[in-house]
Design a protein around this nucleic acid. Structure first.
Lengths: 360, 360
DNA sequence: GTGAAAGCGCTAACAA
DNA sequence: TTGTTAGCGCTTTCAC
């Protein structure tokens, strides 16, 4: 009689006391109950609920059904639906730390928006790079029969494909594998580096320094290549001496100040915004004005930093949102998957740190 | 013959044409197939799979089953499982923008970690404050029979409870409602304001300014109350003139510089880190050193800012991760739900911006 | 110890 | 136009 667990209105009725903590809810209304209430068969209700175009239901019947649905507060059981259809409306997102990292969270956002657009819900798992957790997360997603899995990393890098991932339809996001046929979407670092440099070139600068990262990464090589391309396109010979390296954070940027001044370049492209932030401090200590004495361009477009430095920093955005969205599109076969990783455009964001009249 | 990508060989064999876009995968292995392969009944397999303690299975049988599971690569179908049990292992997280906002993404992270710990997966929906989307998201979660829903906002505020939310077991995270019995977890702004002020008091300051926000919010009132409490505890009379207001961003902080200098306070507690960042610029322009001339404390602990300003900024952390985790615990009934919103501790983070020898 | 069978809520033929 | 029925993959009595 006393069904201990669920159904506390039941328990409330039985014991005479309400259960304020975790209000147990009544047994969910089922299709069958709606059918009975409306005096029709379950098939009919199903037809009405799913608005099947080809099914012709009498207006009167439809009304009775919708009324019953409303009064009973019926909610379809997606699990049962999925059981029948065999595949759920879930897309899994396995992240090694996007939820942790400030701006990379946009990957989640983009994926979720795009997934939603196509009727899918996002199932996320942040694994913090923990391999075991990762396996479990993927297993869980497979058990929920996800339509596919987005495997993403918080910074652009090469990655290994965890074995269970192969059991699903998957797309690598912000990372890639040199394995044949593994679909992936990554930022277009080369174009980004080119755009960053062009921001400076557009303002007449021809002697442009580049403070690259010391840490090996696709971004390091790509941005450098882009920098060289931009110079090349502008007919400016590449001067290796203008390329420095520093640890890619504020401290690194700050420390790079001396080297930059020594080279006397009036324009500089920093590997990332954090470095640019540090450089701002360094330049300021030397009494130099931005962009008057030195024009600065960053990379990443970390909102909190770039938009709010004094002066606001021109930079190139890492398209995290787009990466997430494109990942979903590739997964669903909406966007074609090119041979290698799909390269997502990194848009330039011009702000005051380069605003000096062109003297070209 | 050319099996373009994985998985497709099967379908390629069958249809004679490869399916390069979305490689169809073989029909998932079912419990029944495992049973047949092992020569036992489905009931037995179920018992083995779920490691039922009370069920006594012969070692030999168990081995045959586990072998079959391994060779066939069986994955339980969580949908079917859920259908039977009636309630899924999902917890829904509806956010009005946490995925969008840099640091608030930690709410997702905390919720996901804690949910996972208890065997739950996180189903997220970012609604960007769009009411309709929000309804849809909640409906979707209800249909997937989530165990409960965390309804969260990206900044601490009061909120209305969307009607469909009531159909689920829910907890408000980083927001609250004055409605009876609505469970909620929010940051302890008062304690935070107190801690921030104490950071300054601990270094011997007695004349401490507070640059509050212009915008009404629980944080505004709470932090001010905390500031007053701290002063009171230290036996320092509250001086209304030392409380200024500014728009809570970098620009606002920068603009507040003049007012601060005019009041001549050698220590200041800023409503948030962004304001402190602007104030840094303002103070620097006046040739003032931090913390030598002015000690500064912020609030929020926005990593990119606070940890990397020069000097690093002392601040009080908004416990986003904890909010998400506590939300899950309250939802599952692990943490008791107090009468009002549960207040989560905001830990102080001391950095160099207050490091001046005490002269008390 | 293990199997047979009855559903969980829903969809999709196929009948009527 | 609507009802009947057979599962989807799994758990769970209840027999054997």
């Amino acid at each position: 009689m006393s069904s201990t667990e669920n159904g506390a209105e039941a328990s409330a009725r039985e014991t005479g006391r309400p259960s304020p903590k975790v209000p147990e809810r009544p047994h969910p209304v089922t299709l069958r109950e709606v059918a009975e209430a409306a005096g029709v068969s379950t098939a009919t209700v199903s037809l009405v609920v799913n608005k099947k175009k080809d099914a012709r239901i009498a207006e009167e019947t439809r009304r009775r059904v919708t009324d019953a649905i409303r009064t009973l507060g019926y909610r379809p059981n997606a699990m049962a639906k999925t059981l029948v259809s065999g595949t759920s409306k879930f897309i899994g997102l396995v992240a090694d730390g996007v939820a942790t990292t400030p701006f990379a969270g946009q990957i989640i956002h983009g994926a979720q928006d795009e997934a939603w657009k196509h009727g899918y819900a996002l199932l996320i798992a942040n694994t913090e790079g923990n391999g075991e957790l990762e396996q479990d997360a993927i297993a869980m997603m497979l058990e929920y029969k996800v339509r596919g899995i987005l495997y993403s990393t918080w910074f652009h890098r090469q990655t290994d494909i965890p074995p269970p991932l192969r059991e699903a339809d998957f797309v690598l996001v912000n990372c890639f594998s040199n394995e044949q046929g593994a679909r992936a979407v990554v930022p277009d670092e080369v174009q980004g580096g080119r755009s960053a440099t062009e921001l400076l070139l557009a303002h007449g600068h021809r002697r442009i320094a580049f403070i690259n990262a010391t840490i090996p990464a696709p971004a390091k090589d790509g941005r450098l290549a882009g920098y060289r391309q931009a110079l090349g396109n502008a007919g400016i010979p590449f001067d290796p001496d203008l390329v420095m390296e520093a640890y890619p954070d504020q401290e690194g940027g700050y420390r790079a100040t001396a080297g930059l001044l020594q080279r006397g370049a009036p324009a500089v492209f920093c590997y990332n915004d954090r470095m640019a932030m540090g450089l701002y401090d360094g330049l300021r200590e030397h009494g130099l004005a931005i962009p008057g004495d030195v024009a600065v361009v960053g990379f990443d477009n970390q909102e909190v930093i770039a938009a709010h430095l004094r002066p606001p920093l021109s930079t190139v955005a890492l398209p995290h949102y787009e990466l997430g969205a494109a990942g979903v599109r590739v997964l669903l076969g909406i966007d074609p998957a090119p041979g290698g990783p799909a390269k997502i455009h990194c848009p330039a964001v011009e702000r005051a740190s380069v605003q000096v009249q062109a003297h070209a």
